[in-house]
Design a binder for these strands. Sequence first.
DNA 1: AGCTCTTCCTGAAAGC
DNA 2: TGCTTTCAGGAAGAGC
Length: 295
Amino acid sequence: MPELPEVETIVRGLRTVLPGHTFTSVRLGKTDFIEDPAALGELLPGRRIEGVERMGKFIRLVLSVGPVAKSPERQIDLIVHLGMTGWLGVRRPEDPVAPHTHAFFELEDGRELRYTDIRRFGQMLLLAADQMGAFGERLGKEPLEISASEFNKRLAGRHARIKALLLDQRVFRGLGNIYADESLWQARIHPARLAARLNSTELGRLRKAIRRVLLRAIEDRGSSISDFVDAEGQPGEYQQRHRAYGREGKPCFRCGTKIRREIVAGRSSFFCPHCQPAPRKLRSIRRQSGKPSEK
DNA sequence: AGCTCTTCCTGAAAGC
DNA sequence: TGCTTTCAGGAAGAGC
């Protein structure tokens, strides 16, 4: 599932091949993940790709103004979210078309930008310049750019579980289930801890863990889970470094205790029950209800 | 405010 | 073996 490192990997790949090229036409398959499918064909042809940016898990293609048939003066960007199984990359027309490829954006040099998405949990939309501000404001800060004080401020007084807040794109943009779990393992914080109960040492550890995990994952070109491949079609390597995610029943790399999987914030959460002790309340609730503490 | 449940979708894995 | 059911999950919305 593409999270910040996977999206960054795709973006870096696209950045080497897209800028300077111009859309000539658009062909679409299924369109239920596209906000306004007709607008793509009307507004994209004739526009040049000026840049490729990442906003959290969103990919942003910054496009030129005119000369286009429709709305030449409007600056419009193409925004793509890869959802669970999305992929965006450039291919030649004669290259085999992967199943579930639903959008083809033809370029002036004959190549085409293709969007493939098995489950279609992705999103695609056009954003005019005057809508970008509002769009960005709905997202939290980039976790790689946030200062320690901003980080703490965003979590201070929040009585939600830290895992839920890490996944909430309005708090920080770009983290998903894998990197939330990896960061919490690294910081030795249980996913069900309430953010408001984390002390400043733990908050500091968490921010640094998130940075370390994301930077390392970007170096490794992401985690190849659910068939993730980069814009060139190459898998990432970071899944080999996972310390918590997907390791249920396997020994913790720090202490050897078996990694446990529980649902926290509605998501599968992997953690070490020894290194990441459960919050007190949770432990006592569990005792009262007579749930076995070990599987 | 925050939690849980549901919906979207497909393919892999588990169950029978 | 082969068919059927369950599950996974990013995000948003409903209801509590």
